[in-house]
Design a protein around this nucleic acid. Structure first.
Lengths: 188, 188
DNA sequence: CTTTGATACGAACGATCATTCGTAAAAAAT
DNA sequence: ATTTTTTACGAATGATCGTTCGTATCAAAG
């Protein structure tokens, strides 16, 4: 038990606050109150406010990188990979959707060098995703859609899953988005 | 000349700062420096920091409401309306994409009663958009896609147009998104 | 029982925040 | 030319920020 339980509680509460109010608008006193502590006590468990954001962002970036790696080593065609990537996004969102939102919206408040580090990881992920799409087009499996636009449309569509103020089930969302963004562009 | 020119300069600079750093992370001193003033001088032109955000958000909300109204009074089918709505989003983004970003990302920092007012306007817009989609499905013009998922996918896809760190032309984006989200779901 | 290490807290630090005020210069109106 | 209005500024206000520090409380280890 290297890490205490309280530390996890703080991180979960922080992710929720960051999602609801934004990183900058969340004070350490807000966070302390959310976990029944005073602000100064937080520092027995964490190093700084930014450390929390950094850890949240990096942990999620890791999830996506790992998922991408795992999908890319499979012997399946690009369309199947895209399907799995969409499932990956939704699964991650479903498992911890507050922290993913911080990851998506609040990363820009990271300081250096974490900011550059994060952006590099993100760019790598997107480049790999784009590569899969381009292969799909080259192989004639996908319609001749603009790869970059297709990529960003997929990624943006994933965003609203997190913000979801709707009452839709994750499975329905998955099916609906696949029908729109996978079946719709697959060559018949 | 009811409104001074300087006021507009301040608003434009503010929109840019809000987009780049976020509303909370932008100080009045930052804004003042951006327009070659001292912070206290800003208050000869504006009432408060929140007034700036409020005006930016409301102005853009107005643009969308007006566009929706204008489209809805035309005698065209739902699919054509959706096409026009996508064009509306891209046109607004193209005309003033910094302020649209503030509108999209920073509205939650509005105080009451502006916040409730804004959310109501937004919900109205989305409800009308959803209605058009449902009509399209009911008339058999659209494939049997989940209306809410389709709506949110369209709206989310519009978001990345604003953030666009890409070098794509607005026309290409328009064509690409239409191919994906309109032609892809239209019944053949 | 004693010692040690982890945890909690109040008080305080310097920094920064949005905003106000009195005042002076500049521009506009008369 | 004189009055009026608009604009800019420095200084100051009280609030809040993230964080530090000394100290007290607590549980576990010896």
């Amino acid at each position: 038990m290297a890490k205490s339980k309280k530390r996890d509680i703080i991180f979960i509460a922080a992710a929720k606050l960051f999602r609801d109010r934004g990183y900058q608008a969340t004070s350490m006193r807000d966070l302390a109150e959310a976990v029944n502590l005073k602000a100064s006590s937080l520092y027995n468990h964490i190093g700084s406010k930014e450390e929390i954001l950094k850890e949240i962002c990096m942990a999620n970036a890791e999830k996506f990188s790992l998922g991408m790696e795992q999908i890319n080593t499979q012997d399946i065609n690009p369309l199947q990979k895209i399907e799995l990537l969409i499932k990956l996004h939704i699964d991650i969102a479903k498992s911890d959707y507050t922290s993913v939102t911080s990851f998506n919206d609040e990363w820009r408040h990271l300081g250096e060098p974490a900011l550059t580090d994060f952006k590099t990881k993100r760019r790598d992920y997107e480049r790999q995703f784009l590569q899969i799409i381009k292969e799909g087009v080259a192989l004639g499996i996908l319609q001749d859609i603009h790869p970059q636009i297709y990529l960003h449309t997929i990624l943006s569509s994933m965003q609203w899953v997190y913000h979801s103020s709707s009452d839709l089930e994750a499975d329905d969302i998955h099916k609906g988005i696949r029908a729109l963004l996978v079946d719709g562009v697959a060559k018949k």
